[in-house]
């Protein structure tokens, strides 16, 4: 994923980003990393970063300085992988992981570059809390609530088995046939394609609903058990 910059290599992992240092000096590699973070701010924002430093030897003050530099830029350093026993000890002392194989039940908030397809869906089996943003180039299924301040942005459809009080955006790539549906959308912010919906007026009982585009306007349909 690294472009012009060959000093460091950046790779997406299931649980964050892995940055591998080349044989260049630490100062150069670090400068390259900071430059990447600066120029690609939104990509790195809030990322969990693992660092593979090969055989380089680090002491506590160097690593903690790096961690602070990263945290000031909104990047969370969680692991330092190294062959050097000294560096390993240092990372343990700082409470950093030294291996990155540990599976982790984290949501994949990084946009994936896969093409949208009918069968492609991201599965989220829990409640999305405020501040969480899920983006996917396909359908998104949430089993849980979408709390106020949480955002689900899908190029395909959004289906929520739960209450939506945050933002759902279906057809974010411009797909006018996309829809969003959920068990309770009465307090949701809804966007379909490029159009924002005016929420339905709450009329006592809460019912599952589906929102879709018709003639460039967002329409809604309440689910009824005796219908269809």
């Amino acid at each position: 994923m690294s472009d012009s910059n060959s000093l460091i290599e950046i790779k997406g992992l299931r649980d964050g980003l892995l940055v591998t240092m080349s044989d260049a000096s630490w100062d150069e590699s670090r400068a390259a990393l900071m430059e990447q973070i600066e120029t690609r701010g939104s990509f790195f924002q809030g990322a969990r970063l693992a660092l593979d430093v090969g055989g380089m030897v680090f002491h506590v003050n160097e690593l903690s300085e790096l961690r602070d530099m990263l945290s000031e830029r909104g990047v969370n350093l969680w692991a330092v992988v190294s062959e050097s026993p000294t560096t390993q000890k240092t990372s343990q002392l700082l409470g950093l992981a030294t291996r990155i194989s540990k599976p982790r039940p984290q949501e994949m908030t990084r946009p994936t570059a896969e093409p949208a397809g009918e069968g492609k869906a991201m599965w989220i089996g829990r409640t999305l809390r405020s501040g969480t943003r899920v983006e996917f180039a396909g359908n998104v299924i949430v089993v849980g609530d979408v709390n106020p301040g949480a955002e689900v942005v899908a190029e395909g459809n959004v289906i929520v088995w739960g209450r939506v009080r945050g933002l759902v955006h279906a057809g974010a790539g411009g797909d006018a046939s996309a829809f969003a549906c959920g068990l309770d959308l009465s307090a949701a912010q809804i966007r379909i394609g490029g159009v924002a919906a005016v929420p339905l007026e709450r009329s006592g009982e809460v019912r599952p609903a589906k929102y879709f585009l018709e003639d460039g306007i967002v329409k809604s349909e309440l689910w009824q058990s005796n219908q269809s």
Partner: peptide, 12 residues
């Protein structure tokens, strides 16, 4: 709402 945000960060 702020508490919800904080809980999300703590979980992450």
């Amino acid at each position: 709402r702020d508490a919800d945000r904080v809980i999300g960060i703590l979980e992450a």
